[in-house]
Amino acid sequence: MEVKSRIFDQRINSENVLIQTTLGEYLDLISEAMDKNPFQRKRVTSSKTVYSLLRDDIRKGCVIPPIVLALSYDVADNGRPTPKKDEDIITAILKRQGDLLILDGLQRTHSFKDVIADTSPKDLAAVRDTPIRVEVYMGLNKIGILYRMLTLNSGQTPMSLRQQIEMLYWEYHNTGVEGLKFVREVDSEHATQPNEYNFKDVIEGFNSYLERNEQPLERTDLLENIRSLEKLSHENNNRDLFKEYVNALHKFIVKVIELVNGTSITKDDLQGKSLWGKDSKQCFKKTQVFAGFGAAIGKLKDREVLENLEDIQQICDDLYFDCEPQEFLIELNSALDWISKNTKKIGNAQRMFFQFYFRELLNSEGDSFKDLKTSIEGALHKTRTQLF
């Protein structure tokens, strides 16, 4: 392995190092990291694709475009700046080869492995010595990794922003956030405890915060995806925005659970109306609520009503309702019942309602500030105005 050039990428704040190596050395280098990148597309297996031709090109000594790798910020040389000496760069890469990520070139890498597997023992050494080029981005953070992957793979169908955000914060699925646990239904788990949340629902809410829109968005436009990542990168500067969002959401949920104090209602209490949720947990730990919460606090932040997400945690300490808990639950269920009976796209209308609800509740300039019950009436009025 030999460093041939080094160029600093100002756009993503990372040094790009061009290395010349051999096919065999590269496969040895990347063997531990082949399946570690959650951002990477799946392998193309069809024999009719261009990758079947690529294997023949490799055997014929065709010059293959460089593979692009990343050594992330958290692991590159213990988080310190890229080494100044070329030989120290090689040492850092070799030392942490299990932490390398393939940004562009997974299909070529699989083709390399196929060629090696199909080569006879007498020709193996010659094939392994085939020269190839590899680019390595040193010290690239998660947003930089995803940004560069989007631009490198612009010919493919880009991921939706929700998919991108889920990948960026996937590590929290395993570690949680300060005592909170994320679960996935595909793992046969359910969020039954106050400190448990469905990971997909939380991602949906955080996506709504970034987009300032409570409705489900499945963007596939590359430029829009990149712009959204730029917004995240700017707002996430020197802080963990996802973590702040989750903590603010949980603070609200905990406060409502405390105020409702175990009270629950039945269908009989609603006198023929549909049941949205029998208790505080069923009422508020839902995707529509998380999306409305995210969109609302994003809009309030843009209007400078909220300075940052930490403000919400302080506001939640003072939330209240001037009624019995049962009356509060009936009022909320009645509002959602009206929506279910008077709108065609019920889920979208529910999201809109909760977006208005949290704007009423958390807006210090409004009449319903901190009042959980009166915010319901204001939110339903605005929802009706928008729908009819």
Rank of each mutant, 00 (worst) to 15 (best):
E244S: 11
N237P: 06
E230G: 04
D269C: 01
W276G: 05
S274I: 01
L241C: 05
N238P: 09
K243N: 01
S264E: 02
P216K: 10
C283A: 11
I257C: 02
P216D: 03
N247K: 15
L259H: 06
N238G: 04
H250V: 08
K255E: 13
K243T: 12
F252R: 11
K285I: 06
L249E: 04
W276F: 13
I253F: 15
D269Q: 08
I253W: 11
N238K: 15
D269S: 11
S280M: 02
T220R: 12
I265K: 10
D221Y: 14
R239V: 12
L223H: 05
V256H: 04
N238W: 12
L222V: 13
L259W: 09
K243W: 03
L232S: 02
L229N: 03
V246T: 09
L232F: 09
H250Q: 13
W276R: 10
S264W: 05
L259I: 14
R239M: 10
R239H: 12
R227L: 13
N247T: 09
I265L: 07
E218W: 05
T220S: 05
A248K: 01
K267A: 14
Q282V: 09
L229F: 07
S228Q: 15
L241Q: 07
L232W: 06
E230W: 06
L275A: 07
D221W: 08
D240S: 06
E258Y: 15
G272L: 07
S228M: 15
S274T: 08
D221M: 08
K286T: 12
L270A: 13
F252M: 12
N236S: 11
K278R: 13
R212G: 09
F242I: 01
K285M: 03
C283G: 05
L275S: 07
E214H: 14
T263Q: 10
A248P: 00
E230L: 10
R239L: 09
D269F: 12
